[in-house]
Design a binder for these strands. Structure first.
Length: 424
RNA sequence: GGAGAGGUGGGUGAGUGGCUUAAACCAGCAGUUUGCUAAACUGCGGUACUGGGCAACCGGUACCGGGGGUUCGAAUCCCCCCCUCUCCGCCA
């Protein structure tokens, strides 16, 4: 959520920035915010003055009664009682303006960083780096949804039986490979200085608002109606919300947390050839890295997080490319996002396996996540997160890219974790 | 799920309608003293919104778990909710 004071002070810059997202309502919405803000402040001024008067009058009543001037006290009491009606209606007015302000601000996405290119969709993203060579597979190479059947390691039909489409059952070496990847990713995160967190995988409404899944994206999350809890779509939600309403001391920074969780997504979108197999699921596993940083360090942190993720992909011997997302393809909350895509050789497609974002103060403003500087001023922090990594498409690429006549070769770095070097 | 007790500032904790502008202590910051450290002494206090001012700064309002209510006036009284603790029940 943008800060209203910044909307007020940097109106043109914000409108220009939002234009890069192809966000068409920007100017109208911003103008509504400004108009409402002016009304809100005018109302508050009048209300505060009236309350100040009531407060002094009330104190005076106490003094008059103490000194026995009952008549004067009674007269003043009547006058304050009259003011009270005005206070009530002004309070209702102010409340309405405040609600309206939130409602408007919730509709406005984050302002892209100046280096983010304008654009409307995936075609406008910029490939900033590419690594590795695309393997040349035999003509009879199989896509991963065939390989998993051939080697009996992941079972979609069993998942359908016990849960539904999009809930795969991992079996034998397939399950072991999942556990190996999770442990590998967590160990790597630890070596990059992240503290490991095991958070709850259901969260309350306040947490959903804190990281921006609510109010607009509730359709994306599974909801436990009985208890008012949401299944997390990503560990970002609980791990970032650890710091909701927190004023951190400067010497606690930077904060680096990482955690493995299953992730749940309802994904109302279409199902077809491009989402076959492991490409899109309702439940999947992911290790998430989250950093909380001072403003002046957050873009260095973003680069560090990308380097971490790229290192993982290189160790897994997967060809990948790094995209700087254009304004129109970035998430609502993000000021700058890099996507990492691995090449899945049998599908002949790039698959997004990680998204690394700097949200600047957009989440922190909702979270009320600040730090107190040595000068004693409290300032909003920057939040960042990235997948490091999401498993299913990594598994898809490993299966497809590493298939041989003898079976599927496990990347060397994973062998200590799997305990086997081939799936056959 | 049932019964009882609680929720006050960074921490401990006092506070049964106006004397609270939330005591006191601890921690913190600044200063004095000091060869250094420690101690002692003095002073300062949080957050959000907001008014005036280029600014330093000077004001206002709100905030004692959350929301409502009573009252001229609420940390204090009433109602609803959330959470914590103790005991019971259930249970990996």
């Amino acid at each position: 959520m943008l800060q209203v004071a910044i909307v007020r002070e940097q109106t043109d810059k914000i409108i220009a920035g939002l234009a890069k997202r192809n966000f068409k309502d920007a100017k109208a919405l911003i103008n509504q915010v400004l108009e409402n803000d002016q009304l809100r402040r005018d109302t508050q001024k009048i209300l505060d003055e009236l309350k100040a008067k009531s407060n002094t009058d009330s104190r005076k009543i106490g003094e008059l009664m103490k000194s026995g001037k009952q008549d004067e006290a009674a007269a003043l009491r009547a006058s304050v009682a009259a003011d009270k009606d005005k206070v009530k209606s002004l309070e209702a007015e102010l409340d309405a303006y405040e609600k309206k302000q939130l409602e408007l601000l919730y509709k406005i996405p984050n302002v892209p960083h100046e280096n983010v290119p304008a654009g409307v969709g995936a075609d406008d993203n910029i490939s900033v780096y590419q690594h590795g060579t695309v393997p040349q597979l035999d003509a009879d190479a199989l896509p991963h949804w065939e390989l998993i059947k051939k080697y009996d390691i992941i079972d979609f039909d069993l998942g359908i039986k016990i849960s539904g489409a999009g809930f795969p059952v991992y079996k034998g070496k397939g399950a072991r490979l999942q556990r190996a990847l999770i442990n590998f990713f967590l160990d790597e995160a630890a070596s990059f200085g992240y503290r490991e967190i095991q958070p709850p995988i259901v969260v309350n409404e306040a947490s959903g608002y804190g990281t921006g899944q609510l109010p607009d994206k509730e359709g994306q999350m599974y909801f436990v109606n009985e208890d008012g809890l949401y299944l997390i779509p990503t560990a970002e939600v609980p791990i970032t919300n650890l710091y909701r309403d927190v004023l951190v001391a400067e010497d606690e920074l930077p904060i680096k947390n990482a955690g493995y969780t299953p992730c749940f997504r309802r994904e109302a979108g279409s199902w077809g050839a491009h989402v076959r197999g492991l490409n899109r699921l309702h439940q999947f596993d992911k290790v998430e890295i989250v950093q909380i940083r001072k403003a002046e360090e957050s873009y260095q942190a973003l680069d560090d997080m990308c380097a971490h993720v790229q290192g993982l992909l290189e160790k897994l011997e997967l060809p990948y490319r790094k995209l700087l997302l254009c304004g129109g393809d970035m998430g609502f909350n993000s000021a700058m996002t890099y996507d990492m895509e691995v090449f899945s050789a049998a599908q002949q497609r790039w698959l997004e396996v990680s998204s690394v974002s700097n949200f600047e103060t957009f989440q922190a403003n909702r979270l009320k996540l600040r730090y107190k500087s040595k000068e004693g001023k409290s300032q909003l922090l920057h939040t960042l997160n990235g997948s490091a990594l999401a498993l299913p498409r990594i598994v898809a690429a490993i299966l497809e890219n590493n298939q041989t006549k003898d079976g599927i070769r496990i990347p060397k770095v994973l062998v200590p974790y799997t305990g086997f070097d081939i799936i056959n």
